[in-house]
Design a protein around this nucleic acid. Sequence first.
DNA 1: GCGCGTTATGATATCGATCTCATATGATTG
DNA 2: CAATCATATGAGATCGATATCATAACGCGC
Lengths: 346, 346
Amino acid sequence: MSVTIKDVARVANVAPSTVSRVISDSPRISERTKRKVRKVMEELGYHINYNGRVLVSQSTQTIGIVTKVSTVHSFDNPFFSELLRGISDACHEEDYSIYLTTGNTEEAIFKEVVKMVQGKRVDGVIVLYSREDDKVVPYLRDCNFPFVMVGKPVNRAGETMFVDNDNILASKEVTDYLIQLGHERIGFIGGDSHFEVARDRLEGFRQALANGHLEEDKNLQKNIQSGLADADQVVEELLQVKDPPTGLVITDDYNALTVMRALTSKGLKLPEDMSIVGFNNTMIARLSNPALTTVDTQSFQLGHESARSLIDLLNRPDMIKKSVIIPTVIVERDSCHPRKTIKQKD
Amino acid sequence: MSVTIKDVARVANVAPSTVSRVISDSPRISERTKRKVRKVMEELGYHINYNGRVLVSQSTQTIGIVTKVSTVHSFDNPFFSELLRGISDACHEEDYSIYLTTGNTEEAIFKEVVKMVQGKRVDGVIVLYSREDDKVVPYLRDCNFPFVMVGKPVNRAGETMFVDNDNILASKEVTDYLIQLGHERIGFIGGDSHFEVARDRLEGFRQALANGHLEEDKNLQKNIQSGLADADQVVEELLQVKDPPTGLVITDDYNALTVMRALTSKGLKLPEDMSIVGFNNTMIARLSNPALTTVDTQSFQLGHESARSLIDLLNRPDMIKKSVIIPTVIVERDSCHPRKTIKQKD
DNA sequence: GCGCGTTATGATATCGATCTCATATGATTG
DNA sequence: CAATCATATGAGATCGATATCATAACGCGC
């Protein structure tokens, strides 16, 4: 069908192996022959077929990306898009390609992973989440297949390459920020607690409260899980509490915006009646009204570093399993306000 | 290294070709042998190596996705994420995999495409944009390589498979919607006019004005291009016009929200002082305040259909080059308001 | 002028699967 | 019971590249 190395060899009157050597620019071939062969390649419109090369070199120059269940909340979330851009960028620099897993259920994703790993379609894998009860990561460990996680591994962190923020610290800092503003009743709205990141951020939140000698009230800790409890309900509950919060730490920009909507529809004034901080600094944080103060987790960098680390690992399989922590930055916008010193009658 | 078909053959005491036939569940192999071979595969932990198969079958069961330059505005935009989800979903149903091109410049993208097409890494390609001055589509045509576009081709539509909305109609309808609400001065804020979609939506907008016997004022037609003119500037300009608009058609939810922010910061009340419609019905439309009325372009379906069409084409290469039009729906929310019958003095 | 080391190239096996063609075996039939 | 045929399996070529080993050609020193 298309032009192969043999066609080139025949026309150029050399052996296929010579053509192969010209392709890899081997120093063992004379300049004269190289020129001749290259001319023929040009004339015939030759282009290498990677599949042939892959078979012998046992390397695909491709990395696989595994995301969590994608039905509603993964691609949807701009955070993931940014991650993907970062990965994509790093891959391109190193001339690697990207192979994307899809799949709507955990089981489907797992099968896809097995298929791409065992089927030798990728050289390594980036896992874009960290959660307990996950089959993918243990599987990759068992196979001894090169992989990098975005997010801190649930266990055996020492044996695993990962790229992450210091989520405990980030959450602590941003809670501190609210405390500095005078808030004493601070609520926390997290995501799916199966994920490591959710637990870390709650932990940081609690540390900040403890540090600030503020009482921890479980009634102020809520969850928004995709589909399950929605913002309206959570807001409802938070406002019912006697002595309701004046500040909220929300672990995701998207959810933060949802909550803001719910609050305004209840007649609260933002940021005067409720100070809010989000996480991730996605583009939507800039768009809300008031603009959202949020923790920039530098998702692009997170993605970029994860790909770079994986490629490093592929190049030197025996390298030490380093982990990379990407610093976070609080981006101050307009969604926070010093606590009003109301309740004069007290 | 890993277990191959030959290892299985040796242990099971059959020929490699027999094992291959068992894999493809050929009816020419007895049930007894199949059971025996399968048992050995199980025991040895055999898994097919796709690269071998690809080489002989000349098919990768993989489709490539080409997006426009990704630096700022492609993955960023939830519209693309939804498209990707739709593609991903359809691919998974048909057991196809996804190969993603990256690249920060047009030239880099073009090279990636050549690489994946000539290098035989994918069976077909989905191009997620339609623009003039594009090298990718003409190239794919020249190679006679199977591809599907999302968006109407700039030319030679009859020879090209594509999936699209009727953007002219959609834009006309949504402009009509504003006209029905009594608006007579309506502005249009589009995107990069290199893209076919931008031109179509402008066209529909103009048709609606003409139909409604409204005068077309070029001063009310603006553009927001990624990075270039920003919302504040555009809003500034629009409000400077004598007899400024009371309604705006904005061809993208993201830009619509940017404009809304700019308007409120100028002290306008929404939707009373300005009615706004967006496009795409991305998740951010739901989050704005007031919630954005927008044209649902059904991006998930767009992606889904494009993948399905491509896979159809791959299965029957001589099939007629059909095109699919996905209907649009206006999603009414709270960002539009009947025109106030002010200017009593008139 | 013979032996030897270099250099440039060729011949061939190989990667892991599939596919075509050949063949052994057993069943069917006149 | 020989001829014929269907069935189940094996042998070997093949896909398009790379890599190893062999070898031809050449120059050089003694």
